[in-house]
Amino acid sequence: MNTDIEKLLIKNAKQNVANKTTSLGDIEVRSDTNRYTSQSRFNDELKKVFNSLPTIVAHASEVGELDSYKEVKTTMGSLIVSRDSNNLVRVFRNACRHRGAKLVEGSGCSKLFVCPYHAWSYTTDGALNNIPGHQHCFPNTNKSDNGLIALPSIEMYGFIWVCPSAAENEDIKAHLTGHLAGMNAHLEWLKADELTHFKRFTKVWKGNWKLFSEGGLETYHFAFAHKETIAPFFYNNVAVIDKVDMHYRVVMPTKNLSSEEAQATDDLSLHDYSHTLFMLLPNTALLIQKEHVEFINFRPLCAGETEITITTLIPKSADLNDINQLRHWQKNHDITNTTLNEDWALGESIQSSLESGALPYIQYGKNEWALHAFNEELDALLSV
């Protein structure tokens, strides 16, 4: 996203504020509730969307040190994200090649991954290092053929990505940039490689993953769902919402956009006059605020359950030994979690209604066009 696009977004935000409107679609739409309750559809989404499209599995700072690793739970199972001794990031199946026991839990630093069951060990580049009793018990097992199973992955834009459908000899960077399309420039603008992880909050919520994802694509609910938290800082039902190829950008102007200083020019930073959301299919939301970013990951567990992880990313320059800075970042982390928990709780309420058969369909207004477009995109992916 270059300066001209940022200026245009500021200009469009000012127009929407002046007109007391949000980005509108052409029609109202009814949507079948089955898309949120069907386990069969959910299974198709796992196969054709989550286990096919590129997805972020970690921020680069979470494995920032040489020989550091992190277990990541995904729809593809447990994975190891590892930075080896040569500073190369790899992603492996978290399963010993002997009998499948998990090698790691949590995160840490180690030059070897050692299986807790029979002590088969692997180096951080995935190579099988040692088999206890190799010659006596496994004389026909070749270590070079039994390294950890790697998934196509790349470190890019400050994040670690897995590209499960990339071909064996395919250029992973080209594969990812093709998927991101118009969002590549936006992620360059974000400069997430200049951030580091601060804190994380994870909880399982009783709702379909799409209900939680959709909440970020409209601001119609702010004045009501968030009246005690963030609503006073935003305009009611005002946003600039755009579809960027299969992804979404939502600019939510803050009330300081009406100040004399802001009205005098369009040469302003989105960081200072809005909260901006990048929704990256299939399951990542990046909520960009003045000084930091919230990295939100949705992990579907079944049609009616989703694990949501919120990771607060702050500037690398932050001094957490300074008690005032520590309190500042903790306050931001807490406010975000409190606000988003209001959304997630409403998602649980909706799921309960839909599973009870209370409604034959739900409705999207013209101001909620992006929710319909989001589901149309998913329908297209499932039809392939």
Results as ranks from 00 to 15, higher is better:
residue 312 T to V: 12
residue 108 G to C: 07
residue 28 E to I: 10
residue 316 K to E: 12
residue 272 D to Q: 07
residue 185 A to G: 07
residue 224 F to I: 00
residue 215 G to Q: 11
residue 41 R to C: 12
residue 244 V to Y: 01
residue 58 A to F: 15
residue 285 A to E: 12
residue 249 R to G: 03
residue 367 N to F: 15
residue 313 L to Q: 12
residue 334 D to Y: 03
residue 110 S to A: 11
residue 191 K to G: 08
residue 42 F to D: 06
residue 134 H to L: 13
residue 374 F to S: 05
residue 343 D to M: 05
residue 161 W to M: 02
residue 154 I to M: 03
residue 137 C to G: 00
residue 185 A to P: 02
residue 169 N to L: 08
residue 367 N to A: 10
residue 100 G to V: 01
residue 141 T to G: 01
residue 278 F to G: 00
residue 259 S to K: 08
residue 24 L to Q: 04
residue 83 R to P: 05
residue 42 F to Y: 14
residue 359 L to I: 04
residue 163 C to H: 02
residue 280 L to V: 09
residue 344 W to K: 03
residue 35 R to E: 04
residue 330 Q to W: 01
residue 194 E to Q: 10
residue 42 F to G: 03
residue 101 A to G: 10
residue 296 I to A: 03
residue 307 E to S: 03
residue 70 K to S: 00
residue 159 F to T: 07
residue 270 L to K: 08
residue 160 I to V: 13
residue 345 A to N: 08
residue 140 N to E: 15
residue 95 A to R: 10
residue 114 V to I: 12
residue 265 T to N: 10
residue 202 T to E: 12
residue 229 T to Y: 05
residue 256 N to G: 02
residue 2 N to P: 15
residue 290 K to S: 15
residue 293 V to G: 08
residue 88 L to Y: 08
residue 220 Y to K: 01
residue 102 K to S: 14
residue 142 N to C: 14
residue 342 E to H: 01
residue 313 L to H: 13
residue 363 Q to V: 15
residue 93 R to E: 15
residue 278 F to H: 08
residue 145 D to L: 14
residue 139 P to N: 06
residue 176 L to R: 03
residue 176 L to G: 02
residue 127 A to C: 14
residue 179 H to F: 09
residue 248 Y to W: 07
residue 261 E to T: 14
residue 355 E to K: 06
residue 63 V to G: 02
residue 15 Q to F: 13
residue 355 E to P: 06
residue 47 K to Y: 11
residue 209 W to V: 14
residue 202 T to V: 13
residue 67 D to Y: 06
residue 194 E to D: 06
residue 280 L to F: 11
residue 303 A to C: 11
residue 125 D to I: 05
residue 24 L to V: 06
residue 33 T to G: 09
residue 67 D to M: 10
residue 237 N to T: 02
residue 260 E to W: 06
residue 350 I to L: 13
residue 24 L to A: 03
residue 296 I to M: 14
residue 50 F to M: 07
residue 72 V to D: 01
residue 230 I to G: 00
residue 149 I to S: 13
residue 370 A to C: 03
residue 159 F to G: 10
residue 201 F to Q: 10
residue 300 P to Y: 07
residue 333 H to Y: 12
residue 5 I to E: 12
residue 272 D to T: 07
residue 109 C to D: 05
residue 60 A to E: 14
residue 257 L to M: 13
residue 382 L to A: 09
residue 298 F to D: 06
residue 155 E to S: 11
residue 64 G to R: 08
residue 284 T to Q: 07
residue 238 V to T: 04
residue 209 W to L: 10
residue 372 H to F: 15
residue 153 S to C: 15
residue 384 V to D: 15
residue 305 E to L: 04
residue 98 H to D: 00
residue 154 I to H: 02
residue 212 F to R: 03
residue 181 A to M: 05
residue 326 L to Y: 08
residue 368 E to W: 05
residue 30 R to Y: 11
residue 328 H to I: 14
